[in-house]
Deep mutational scan, measured.
Amino acid sequence: AEKTGIVNVSSSLNVREGASTSSKVIGSLSGNTKVTIVGEEGAFYKIEYKGSHSYVAKEYIKDIKDE
Rank of each mutant, 00 (worst) to 15 (best):
G18N: 10
G42Y: 04
G39K: 03
A57H: 07
G51Q: 06
S20N: 08
Y55H: 01
S54A: 15
E59M: 11
E59F: 08
Y55N: 00
H53R: 05
Y49G: 00
Y60T: 04
K24P: 13
S52Q: 13
G31C: 13
I6D: 02
F44N: 02
S30I: 13
V9H: 12
D66Y: 14
G51Y: 04
R16K: 06
S30D: 12
A57N: 08
T4F: 14
S20I: 04
L29T: 02
S22F: 09
K3F: 11
A1D: 09
I47K: 00
G5K: 04
G51I: 02
G5L: 04
S22R: 07
I64H: 07
I61S: 01
V25R: 03
T36Q: 08
V9K: 09
E59R: 10
V56Y: 00
H53W: 11
V35I: 09
G5F: 06
S12K: 13
I37F: 00
D63A: 11
S11N: 12
K24S: 08
S11H: 14
K46S: 04
N14Y: 11
N14D: 15
E48V: 15
S10Q: 13
K50G: 10
V38P: 00
S10T: 13
I61E: 01
G31Y: 13
G42F: 05
I47M: 01
T4I: 13
A43Y: 07
G31Q: 12
E40H: 06
D63L: 15
G51L: 04
S11K: 09
V7G: 03
V7F: 03
I64E: 08
A43Q: 11
E2D: 10
E48F: 11
A19F: 04
V56A: 05
K58G: 02
E17Y: 05
D66S: 12
A57R: 10
S23K: 03
V56N: 00
L13W: 03
A57F: 10
K65S: 14
G31L: 09
V9D: 06
S20W: 05
G27S: 02
G27H: 02
V35T: 01
L29K: 00
I37H: 00
S10I: 13
K46V: 12
I64F: 10
V56I: 08
I26V: 13
K3W: 15
S28H: 14
N14F: 12
K62A: 11
I37G: 00
V9S: 13
G5R: 03
T36I: 14
A57E: 15
S12W: 13
S11R: 07
S52N: 10
D63V: 15
V7P: 03
G31I: 09
Y55F: 12
E40G: 04
T4R: 08
V9L: 07
V7S: 04
N8S: 12
G5I: 05
Y49C: 03
T21C: 15
H53V: 12
E2W: 15
V56M: 02
N32R: 07
G18I: 06
N32M: 10
E59K: 12
Y55K: 00
S22V: 09
N14T: 12
K50H: 10
S22A: 12
V25H: 03
A19E: 02
E59Q: 11
G42K: 05
Y45A: 01
S22C: 13
L13M: 06
V7I: 08
S11D: 14
V7A: 05
G27A: 05
S54W: 06
N8H: 10
V15T: 03
K62D: 14
K62S: 14
V15L: 06
S10V: 13
E41H: 08
I47P: 01
V7Q: 02
A57M: 12
N14M: 13
K62Q: 10
V38W: 06
N14C: 15
V7L: 04
S28W: 10
G27C: 05
K58A: 06
I37R: 00
T36R: 12
S10Y: 09
K62F: 10
A43R: 08
E2R: 15
S20E: 07
V35M: 02
N32C: 14
S20P: 01
S54G: 15
A19M: 03
K46T: 05
K62Y: 10
T21E: 14
S11Y: 10
A43S: 11
I61V: 08
K50N: 13
I6Y: 12
R16L: 15
A1N: 13
Y60H: 11
E67W: 08
S20F: 07
V9G: 11
E40C: 08
N8F: 10
Y55T: 01
I61W: 02
S54E: 03
G18R: 11
I47V: 05
E41V: 11
E40T: 07
K34H: 09
E48L: 15
T4L: 10
I6L: 09
K65W: 10
K46W: 04
I26K: 04
I61Y: 02
V15W: 01
K50R: 11
G39P: 00
E17F: 05
V15H: 02
V7N: 02
K62L: 11
N32W: 10
R16H: 15
V25A: 05
S30N: 10
G5A: 06
Y60W: 09
F44R: 00
E48Q: 11
K46C: 11
E2T: 15
G51E: 06
N32S: 08
S11L: 09
A43P: 10
G27Y: 03
V15C: 06
I47R: 00
K34C: 11
G51C: 07
I6W: 13
G18W: 11
T36G: 04
G18Y: 14
H53G: 04
V7M: 03
I26M: 06
E67T: 13
E41G: 03
A43M: 11
G39L: 04
V35K: 00
I37M: 02
G27M: 02
V25P: 04
I6R: 08
